[in-house]
Design a binder for these strands. Structure first.
Lengths: 233, 233
DNA sequence: TTGACAACATACTTTGCAGTATGTTCAAGT
DNA sequence: ACTTGAACATACTGCAAAGTATGTTGTCAA
């Protein structure tokens, strides 16, 4: 990788953020593929056609890079769902909109959400170098407050009589397992249209709502998106 | 760790299998806690109050140890579910029995099932030292044939009109995400009775069957196990 | 036009850990 | 009783990868 390969290699400060973004995307892909521990910095660098030096220029350590990807993943999914949290709708409709937004974001930013997942169950057993571990805890708190929004709307929807469950924690966990399923089993294919993704998300939401004992009525359509039938995957 | 610590350190050949078992359990716990890559052999050895030498006496490499844990996890869950696969019952009842057996096994052998999980999504991106990679593929085939049994019973249950789904692959993936949920979110507590575990499993099965659009009738009880109400976790 | 500094690349140091080589102990067969 | 070998422990080696130190280049501000 000689300087000549990059026409405008020196863009200075203003788009340092862009450079960090590119690094994060490469890192997210690597972390998703082989996990945090098994991924080397050289690997991440190679993926974006670069070298170690560039990454260590922007990040103090491998852990900090990981945490930045984690943080970004959280931000992405929160920004996707947040508009629907306080919508002026019946709880059940809010719930459905939140589920849909969550799955769609998962499908679109899978590598990042995979890192979030790794981060969550990395907290349980201290693997991080102390200083970064505090950050991990902070992010876990963010994650908790995110899931609290779902917990709340679940309670409200049950009060409405629209859904039903026994233990809300188990129910919520099952909901998230279902919603986050694509992180594990979804593999984006070459010529996949936005519409196909949307159908896939709809099916995930369908199963999730069923899981919650959604009273009969299989699917009154949401205002904005259109309903379809088909064979997604 | 001096020899004196162990009264009967030299048990010779006959119970070499027992020694391997102890190693595997320690390994399963470590792999579950920190993942394959982040776990060191010394760590596994320390957990069972031993040293590296013992492990390398029984296993040629870290990978082979991992594969043995993987294999054992598969065997455990297969042996738990297999009796119900060919039972002379309506497909829906067979399905329910299989789901229950699966979840129960997951709850009881969580560390092993976690390793299975790691093994499954380790295959996608070649991290293993070539020779062992072939073993990984073999085990993945086993895993596939296991999940095929669920696929079959799902089709039969739909033919019966007992359940409903759109894309069977997505449905099956969602089912497994739900069923394997405890691998991620369940943490065994100190004074936890068998009965509490059973209730937890029942709730997981409940949500999973609902997910499959189980026609109305919330729960006709199975022959053997008794039905309960309560707050499991 | 010339410092100064951001944005890298390159070359080096360090270390944790997989794997190995070797030593030690006991148990069973002869 | 001595020999062989299984079942370990201990001490060592080698390498991969994290982290660092230093070199290089272009851009902007003055």
């Amino acid at each position: 990788m000689t300087p000549a390969d990059r026409p405008t290699r020196y863009r200075r400060q203003s788009d340092a953020e862009l450079s960090r973004m590119e690094i994060m995307e490469g890192a997210a892909l690597c972390f998703e593929a082989r996990g945090f521990a098994a991924t080397s910095i050289d690997e991440v660098a190679a993926r974006i056609g670069s070298t170690k030096g560039r990454i260590y220029h922007h990040y103090a350590s491998k852990s900090e890079l990981f945490l930045d990807v984690y943080r970004t993943g959280m931000r992405l999914i929160f920004e996707a769902v947040e508009p629907h949290i306080e919508a002026d709708l019946p709880a059940f409709d809010r719930l459905r909109a939140m589920l849909k937004a969550h799955v769609l974001c998962v499908l679109r930013t899978k590598p990042f959400q995979n890192v979030v997942r790794q981060g969550v169950d990395m907290l349980r057993h201290g693997v991080m170098p102390a200083r970064e571990h505090a950050e991990l805890i902070q992010l876990a708190r963010l994650r908790d407050s995110y899931s609290d929004h779902f917990l709340t709307v679940l309670e409200q929807a049950r009060a409405e009589g629209a859904i039903d469950y026994q233990n809300i924690k188990i129910a919520l966990n099952s909901v998230f397992m279902c919603l986050n399923g694509p992180i594990v089993w979804f593999t984006p294919r070459d010529g996949q249209t936005e519409e196909e993704i949307d159908l896939l998300a709809d099916e995930c939401v369908l199963y999730t709502l069923r899981l919650l004992g959604q009273a009969a009525a299989p699917s009154r359509p949401l205002p904005s998106p259109k309903s379809h039938q088909g064979e997604p995957a």
